[in-house]
């Protein structure tokens, strides 16, 4: 079995909640596929608020680039205090309180509406650094990771910056941040497929439902990996059957996996037999993506 070199999909690994095994799956899948076809893989850690894929993959990251957003700077001599900027801002990142003009750069989305509506052109947009993109390799795997500056609240500019590094000629795995809010949506959007990792518990199910709904709205096909299978109940299985969502893989509740992970080892490093299963899963996803592309091409 060899990895199909003509199809290079981008797969997001996401979950409605943290700690379900996203990074375990993302790193293990990257290593398994790379073992079959060295040099075919790219992994991008999109959890820029708490990146952790590098802990398991120990990449060499020689390249570093800043991520900058545009924020307003107000020329107070020109400003008439009309307040048009404050009314235009959807994030309350600029306020005109009596004679004071305040900008809150940590709230700013960098949309430029304030500068656009200013009737006297008192606002210039200046660059502000919000994070960093690092890139390099872990063995033959192309590795990209982003970090949001501590104290900054808007992760999506950094997520976009790491996603700009997606290479079409490689199979790309995007390790998504937990939850279903903007940073997760920014990661999943534009992917060919989304693998949702969940636990077979009521909590896992509830968060899975949110994640499935999010994928459907974004228009990205998804399948489920049940991690710690055998614990909890059959709620996730029943939900997936009922909704016609494919269960791609079941990773059993196994102390050896947990022990290996706690030592910073991936699933495939600890139990090499999982490599084959992950490659098989990839082939299946690749077929689903190809079928989807054909369907969209026809319609």
């Amino acid at each position: 079995m060899s990895v199909n070199a003509t199809s290079r999909p981008t797969m997001a690994i996401a979950a409605g909640k943290g700690g379900t095994g996203k990074t375990l799956v993302a790193t293990s899948l990257a290593i398994a596929l790379d073992a079959h076809d060295p040099g075919c893989m790219q992994i991008i850690d999109c959890d820029v608020e708490e990146p952790n894929a590098h802990l398991l993959m120990q990449p060499d990251l020689p390249t570093e680039a800043p991520v900058e957003v545009l924020v307003p700077e107000v020329d107070l001599d020109t400003c008439t205090r009309c307040g048009a900027c404050a009314r235009a801002c959807q994030f309350s990142a600029i306020a005109v309180i009596r004679q004071a003009v305040l900008t809150f750069h940590d709230l700013c989305a960098g949309c430029g509406a304030c500068a656009y509506v200013c009737p006297v052109d008192a606002i210039t947009e200046v660059k502000r650094r919000v994070g960093t993109v690092q890139s390099g390799h872990s063995d033959a795997i192309d590795f990209v990771t982003g970090t949001l500056n501590v104290g900054d609240q808007r992760a999506t500019p950094v997520t976009r910056a790491v996603k700009n590094r997606i290479r079409e000629d490689l199979i790309t795995i995007l390790d998504a941040p937990p939850g279903t809010a903007c940073p997760m949506q920014e990661t999943v959007e534009g992917s060919d497929y989304c693998i949702l990792v969940t636990e077979p518990t009521p909590f896992g199910l509830s968060n899975l439902q949110d994640a499935v709904e999010t994928c459907r709205r974004i228009g990205v096909p998804c399948g489920v990996i049940i991690n710690r299978d055998g614990s909890g109940n059959d709620g996730v299985e029943r939900y997936c059957a009922q909704e016609g969502i494919e269960v791609l893989l079941r990773i059993p509740q196994d102390r050896r996996i947990a022990e290996a992970y706690s030592r910073g080892e991936t699933l495939v490093a600890a139990m090499p037999q999982w490599g084959e299963k992950l490659v098989e899963m990839y082939h299946h996803i690749s077929d689903v993506v190809a079928a989807q592309a054909t369907k969209e091409g026809v319609s």
Partner: peptide
């Protein structure tokens, strides 16, 4: 609002002409 509620409220009451505020909890913004 998702974020910036405190700033928006300050703007709102300033525009309404308030010179003082009575409240219990407000944040740095």
């Amino acid at each position: 609002a998702g974020t910036g509620a405190g700033v928006a409220a300050a703007q709102l009451i300033a525009d309404a002409g308030a010179e003082a505020v009575i409240t219990s909890a407000l944040g740095p913004h």
